[in-house]
Design a protein around this nucleic acid. Structure first.
Lengths: 226, 226
DNA sequence: CTCCGTTGTTACCACCTGATGACGCTCAAA
DNA sequence: TTTGAGCGTCATCAGGTGGTAACAACGGAG
């Protein structure tokens, strides 16, 4: 099993050092950022398994980083680090989609246990390799195969498929798909979603004319079988 | 939307009363138990959406209750309530599968926010599905089925049915239905509602000639059974 | 019993939506 | 510079969808 990747967004170098040290000793891989913008960028690109997020940050605030992470559809657990006596802040953070918070100064044992609990719960919900019918999607290795033979997908095709696996069983609007797979930066028509779905179907469906994995939901978008 | 059900397992009557009061005011439905055995029994039978669990309990300890809940494969979030200065206990609790803990005395606002956050996260994974008699409407997947067999609906039919499920039990005028399902943009006669209801009935009613799910309310419109 | 307003049902067809082949732009590798 | 893969857009086409109309059925009022 690949070690789990934790992103620490924290501007206090001493605390960051302590966290990094403890996390690595516990077997996690660690990336870190010193301000909000850089942290958000890393969260988007390296897709950590969990984010440790200081509330007071230069650049974007911790709240804003958390909110944008959720807006982007990223689902990893987020743990807020706050100073004492900020209950109001905490409430706000939790409402923005944070999963937990820990008050500084914190017991390192407690923090590690919380992290382990969140990762365990999250893993239960999103396993690394997903099997739908005879199709196998290995999110860890970024590989797709059917009956052992690998299916080559382009980056966009894979991104679309991975998004589908994370939202399997739910009807997804083209807009949701665009936001998640293309990102809000790209100015793209939702016809492009259709196009991408067609090519993806041609590669992963047994019979692309009668798709079973990716269903069209008329007037809405698509649904991936669960 | 049905209110979410929270099970509180707590032996201190004063704290229990306060929790119950706050939870109900926040719109949750509350069940409670005063000892571990009874609490576990309730968790198994009523399947609450979340469990608030005191650590010190007569009968089974909070830890034991939590462990058995997980052993049983129940996946609802569990929040532990602990007294101050029990970090070791907390670590143990989190490792047993608790999702969070709160230290007494706690700020009620913080507790409520944590509860809301956990429910939100958990709900993201379990789509909301409504059951009327033997009919099952999965709003997340945009699917309808009866006894496991899927019923294919056109977009308009589904939109109409979903609207009905959201307003079930109330008589709805054709105008209300038009506004909600067709949108004010479309200039459509209210005979179209009749027609849509007819086709919908033909698909979802056991006996379309004697409708039970969608009742006609003469001179007004229709009512969906609740 | 008859008339009339309301609702159910069926047939028809204009329009829209989604699938897909073709094309061209961009970017990176050779 | 060339080449080719990736990908977004466009045009076209087939099939489904749903609105309208026309008629049937129903039920209440007089």
């Amino acid at each position: 099993m690949k070690p789990e990747l934790i992103l620490v967004i924290e501007d206090d170098a001493a605390i960051l050092f302590g966290l990094r040290d403890n996390l690595q000793r516990a077997g996690y891989e660690v990336r870190s950022a010193g301000d909000g913008h850089q942290g958000l960028e890393l969260a988007r690109t390296v897709r950590p398994d969990l984010v440790l997020l200081d509330l007071m940050l230069p650049g974007l605030s911790g709240h804003e980083v958390c909110r944008r992470i959720r807006v982007d559809g990223l689902e990893m657990p987020v743990v807020m680090l706050t100073a004492l006596g900020e209950e109001a802040q905490v409430v706000r953070g939790l409402n923005l989609g944070a999963d937990d918070y820990v008050t500084k100064p914190f017991g390192i044992g407690e923090l590690m246990a919380r992290i382990a609990a969140l990762l365990r719960r999250h893993r239960r919900v999103t396993p690394d390799v997903v099997t739908i019918g005879s199709l196998e999607v290995d999110r860890g290795a970024r590989r797709v195969s059917r009956e052992g033979v690998e299916i080559e997908l382009t980056p966009k095709e894979y991104g679309l498929l991975e998004f589908f696996t994370r939202k399997s069983g739910r009807a997804l609007t083209r807009e949701q798909i665009l936001d998640a797979v293309w990102g809000d930066s790209a100015a793209v028509t939702d016809r492009s979603v259709d196009r991408a779905v067609t090519t993806l179907r041609s590669k992963i469906e047994e019979n692309p004319n009668r798709p079973t994995l990716i269903q069209t939901v008329p007037q809405v978008g698509y649904r991936f079988e669960s």
